[in-house]
């Protein structure tokens, strides 16, 4: 564990809490892509099946349980409790276009052909693109609530900090996981446009609106 990874995990946690609080406080999931949240729940479920097989540390296990529980809580809020506020008309990204390539890619490029490893690989590839339905929704409506943009920023910053952590680990431990690194870089690049607008607009107190 190094400071970059810890900061990354904290950003990840903050993102999830911000999203849950936003939905809970406003009693609405307007502007939130339920499809991205389904994909994230799938990411955590397939990655953290190792909770039953490998123990890394108490920190790891607790965080995994939090990520799993919060992702299903988010789905419950969107699809059950505040279903009436769910903006399904704008949440039209076809997730099979992400799921099928991720399944194929995880069968082609993996560290090992064991069920748990294949699920882990799939979860890494899927996480890289899971935000696309949300970004698609923002681009469709042309705007995002400020709190939603904070959520997206924290979620994007998390993987960007992991990249710094991987560079650090490469030099200090000679540790490198090619699959996670390449997927993590792609994941971060997908947020690049958003980061730019967030920094130039939201941090200056303006609304998050895409240029017309």
């Amino acid at each position: 564990m190094n400071i970059f990874r810890l900061l990354g995990d904290i950003c990840h946690l903050v993102a999830i809490i911000v999203l849950l609080l936003k939905i809970w406080k406003t009693r609405s999931c307007a502007g939130i892509s339920g499809k991205s949240q389904i994909l994230f729940a799938l990411v955590y479920t397939t990655r953290y099946v190792d909770l039953f097989f490998t123990y890394v540390s108490l920190y790891n296990s607790v965080m995994k349980v939090i990520f799993l529980a919060s992702s299903y809580a988010t789905l419950y809020l969107i699809y059950v409790k505040f279903k009436a506020t769910y903006d399904f008309n704008h949440d039209t990204f076809r997730i099979e276009f992400l799921l099928i390539p991720c399944v194929i890619l995880s069968l082609l490029i993996t560290h090992d052909y064991s069920p748990v490893e294949l699920l882990w690989t799939f979860s890494i590839y899927l996480e890289a693109v899971a935000i696309l339905p949300q970004l698609f929704m923002v681009s469709k409506t042309g705007e995002a609530e400020t709190i939603t943009s904070h959520y997206l920023f924290a979620l994007g910053a998390y993987r960007a900090l992991y990249i710094v952590n991987w560079i650090y680990r490469y030099y200090t431990e000679s540790f490198i996981d090619g699959i996670a690194v390449v997927a993590g870089i792609i994941q971060t690049i997908l947020y690049a446009d958003f980061f730019y607008l967030y920094i130039t607009k939201v941090l200056k107190g303006k609304d998050f609106k895409l240029p017309a």
Binding site: D50, F67, T110, E117, W120, D177, I179, A180
Partner: peptide, 10 residues
């Protein structure tokens, strides 16, 4: 496919 990597990250 390369070495098996221990997944100690989240």
């Amino acid at each position: 496919m390369g070495d098996i990597v221990a997944h100690d990250e989240l």
